[in-house]
């Protein structure tokens, strides 16, 4: 574990963004998530780690109700975003997803130009009053995703023509453009090479200044590098949730220690 570089950045704020209480998720008869209780703070990077199939992605997808698109999936318990139950009947999942953006495991740019990819969210939600404003949003989002310099001369080129790392940053720019309050990232670097990964990680650290970021990752090094808080999932249970430094240096649960030292996983 010598290669693990722990970030000693202090958490800027202690304001809670998302509170999850006793969340259960069922896929048909399969009880995928059991009694998960977690507090996600604003302007913080929270990492979900754990072996494959432990439910971390499933739980992440509960936070913006992406699981609604799967017919057999059922969610119980309470998830509050700014003290508002997101599974309440009055909440419009579509509005919720605008507030809780998502970046997926595989880069999935739309079959549109780079410009239109980024402008997609703002156009749908009417965030820009004029073409100039939209141009500005696109530029800031691309800058924030550290992609502007690479694509500013070819904004009309198809987004699908970029390299893998560029595509993923385009997807991040696309998510950022809707000005979400929380950004969920589902293994955003698993399809990228080390250089692109480093770029995306740097980006995640930047994004922390504006929103709360939740990242699911298989790489413990990555969790250690980018997050302030880490949650360890195992077999659908949340085993341990604490400051990243604590989880990686002095875990309380023996299962966490085994996973981090590579004995289970």
């Amino acid at each position: 574990m010598n290669d693990m570089r722990l970030t000693e950045r202090a958490v800027d704020t202690n304001q809670l963004k998302i509170t999850a209480r006793d969340v259960q998720v069922f896929y048909g008869d399969n009880h995928a998530i059991k009694d998960v209780t977690v507090d996600i703070q604003d302007k913080t990077v929270t990492a979900f780690i754990g072996p494959s199939g432990c439910g971390k992605s499933t739980f992440l997808r509960c936070l913006n109700r992406m699981n609604d698109t799967i017919d057999i999936c059922r969610v119980e318990g309470k998830i509050l975003l700014d003290d508002e139950d997101i599974y309440d009947k009055r909440v419009d999942p579509v509005q919720l997803r605008a507030k809780v953006g998502m970046v997926f495991q595989k880069p999935n740019p739309f079959p549109k130009s780079i410009y239109d990819n980024v402008a997609y969210g703002p156009k749908i939600h009417g965030l820009a009053r004029s073409k100039t404003e939209l141009d500005e949003i696109v530029e800031t989002s691309l800058r924030r995703a550290a992609l502007w310099d690479e694509v500013k001369d070819r904004l009309t080129a198809p987004g699908t023509g970029l390299s893998g790392g560029q595509q993923q940053r385009l997807c991040i720019a696309r998510a950022v453009a809707t000005s979400p309050e929380v950004l969920l990232m589902d293994e955003p670097c698993s399809a990228l090479d080390p250089i692109a990964t480093a770029q995306v990680e740097e980006l995640i650290d930047d994004l922390r200044s504006r929103f709360s970021v939740v990242i699911v990752t298989h790489s413990m090094q990555q969790a250690a590098r980018v997050s302030q808080k880490t949650a360890f999932f195992h077999l659908g249970n949340l085993v341990e949730f604490d400051d990243t430094t604590k989880i990686f240096t002095n875990p309380e649960d023996p299962r966490t220690e085994s996973y981090i030292t590579g004995r289970i996983g």
Binding site: T69, R97, M102, V103, C171
Partner: peptide, 19 residues
């Protein structure tokens, strides 16, 4: 993945289909 990307940005079903 295309649909997920669009839903993830807060698009409705018909917006996703159309665009």
């Amino acid at each position: 993945a295309m649909r997920d990307g669009s839903f993830g940005l807060g698009a409705t079903h018909s917006e996703t289909i159309r665009q």
